[in-house]
């Protein structure tokens, strides 16, 4: 049984202009100790997905369908108090901007100790000892001194190390890291990323890594999800997707990578922009930008089709698997 199993998850934001679906029919699994990458354009719903796993969507967002199975419990419908015992304890999160994540009026020590005491019956001095050990693990110089310092006394990189230390405090099963290095100085991004990956590996923590950076995903994750307009349009082993992307959108993302470009040529950007959630086109939401668009793409939502070890939501892929008539159509286009 997988560690985490998300089934047909749907998230709505009940706005005045009618409910908007930020996630539609999202299903995936996560194994113990596995590293899963989540990629997609800005606004694709990556952060919403991260927060909906621990059911921490800010109003008016809420899970409107589906379930999140973790240790035999459905987090999408769990009572608040039980949910609280899982957050920060079994599943923890690392946010994007370390300058905003820590409370400015509480010391680092207080913010670490409270987390331990929220989940364990433990004395303050014992909690401090554990906190100190974690700070040393994230390689913070003179860790002891840091416990009494306030966030504003520390640099961004230092703060993100502390956030990582907080994430690891209770030996969680899963860490959800939402663009953990994007807000940091470029020179320390790789350092922090390596630190986080190493610690996850050492402690056998499964990692959901949300990022824009396909390069990082291809290097460090075992499986990946590609999101577009609130749906997972392709998922599977990272190697397979990187080497042989099936969905035209994923192919576009790969071609836009600098590594893929022929030197001297312009990068191949996918033309157009992702539609706003209020007016997602009928059929496949990628159809206005797709160069292989077919009649059916504007009418019917593509089903998830197995292709190799990947699941792809694309009519073209579905047809190439099931119907020979598509071969013809494809050759016509070429």
């Amino acid at each position: 049984m997988p560690l985490l199993e998300v089934n047909n998850l749907e998230v709505c934001f009940g706005l005045r202009s009618g409910a908007v679906k930020a996630l539609r029919d999202v299903s995936f699994t996560l194994e113990r100790g596995e590293r899963l990458g989540v990629v997609g354009e800005s606004g694709a719903g990556k952060s919403v997905l991260g927060f909906s796993i621990i059911n921490l969507l800010s109003r008016p967002g809420h899970i409107s369908a589906g379930n999140v199975n973790f240790e035999g419990k459905d987090l999408a419908s769990l009572a608040p108090e039980e949910l609280r015992s899982i957050r920060g304890n079994r599943i923890s999160m690392i946010f994007q901007d370390p300058m905003m994540t820590l409370n400015p009026v509480l010391t680092i020590g207080v913010q670490m100790v409270e987390c331990l005491q929220a989940h364990r019956q433990i004395s303050t001095s014992d909690a401090k000892r554990i906190a100190l050990k974690r700070l040393q693990q994230v390689q913070i110089p003179s860790a002891e001194k840091r416990l009494d310092q306030y966030p504003h006394e520390l640099s961004g990189g230092m703060r993100q190390r502390i956030v990582i230390a907080i994430g690891l405090l209770l030996d969680p099963d899963i860490i959800i890291a939402d663009e953990p290095t994007t807000a940091l100085d470029v020179t320390i991004q790789a350092e922090i990323m390596d630190l986080m990956l190493n610690l996850c590996e050492q402690n056998n923590v499964a990692l959901i890594l949300i990022t824009h950076d396909l390069g990082v995903v291809s290097q460090v994750t075992q499986r990946m999800l590609v999101m577009y307009a609130g749906r997972i349009i392709e998922q599977g082993p990272t190697k397979e997707i990187i080497n042989d992307a099936q969905h035209p959108y994923t192919q576009g993302l790969m071609n836009a990578l600098p590594q893929m470009a022929i030197p001297g040529q312009k990068l191949n950007q996918i033309k157009g922009t992702m539609p706003p959630l209020q007016n997602i086109p009928t059929g496949c939401s990628f159809n206005p930008r797709c160069e292989y668009v077919m009649d059916i793409c504007t009418k019917k939502l593509p089903p998830f089709t197995q292709s190799g070890n990947c699941l792809v939501a694309c009519h073209m892929v579905a047809d190439s698997q099931h119907g020979p008539q598509q071969e013809k159509l494809r050759s016509e286009e070429v």
């Binding site: 957050r87 999160m93 946010f95 905003m100 820590l102 929220a118 956030v163």
Partner: peptide
């Protein structure tokens, strides 16, 4: 609405 309050929820701190 702030990030640090959201982070506190994510840590499982009591309301």
């Amino acid at each position: 609405q702030s990030e640090y309050v959201k982070f506190a929820w994510a840590k499982g701190i009591s309301p």
